[in-house]
Computed example of a mutant assay.
Amino acid sequence: MSAAKTKAQSIINENGVVVFSKSWCPFCKASKDLLAEFGAKFRAVELDQMGSDDGADIQSALQEITSQRTVPNIFVGQKHIGGNSDLQAKKGELPALLKDAGAL
């Protein structure tokens, strides 16, 4: 397993909610805003602000893990949710998912 894949997997495993994001991305902002609106504790990993090639390597590793290359790439309770539209579509069940993930 590549170092980036190991790093991505450990971030996913150690956090109830993770948003792999880019700081300039409006869809990422919408996802983080929705989670904040629910009062969720989450880790945002800004791939564009990581040193050297780490962000690009992690984004490639996430594609291997999830088959999704785009951001945001969201995990709740170590389960892949998808992107912003997937998260927005789960708005109704989000409180229960966040509670189960220990993020509320």
Rank of each mutant, 00 (worst) to 15 (best):
P26D: 09
V18Q: 14
K79Y: 08
N15H: 15
Q88K: 12
I81T: 09
A89G: 12
A56H: 10
Q59N: 11
R69S: 03
A40D: 08
F42E: 08
S52I: 01
T6S: 13
I74A: 06
A44R: 06
E46A: 03
I11T: 09
Q9F: 00
I81W: 08
Q59Y: 02
W24E: 06
D33P: 08
L34M: 15
A56E: 14
R69L: 06
L62W: 14
T6L: 13
A103Y: 13
L47F: 05
A61I: 02
C28D: 15
E64W: 00
L34C: 07
V17W: 06
A89F: 06
S52D: 15
G92A: 14
A3E: 15
A3S: 10
F38A: 11
V19I: 15
G102Q: 12
T66H: 04
L87G: 07
V19P: 12
E46K: 07
N73P: 01
D53T: 14
D33R: 10
K91Q: 14
E14H: 09
T66A: 02
F75L: 01
D100N: 08
N15L: 09
F38L: 07
P95Q: 11
G83P: 01
L97R: 03
K5C: 03
Q68L: 03
N13P: 02
D54K: 01
I81A: 01
E64K: 00
Q49F: 08
A4H: 02
D48V: 14
I81L: 06
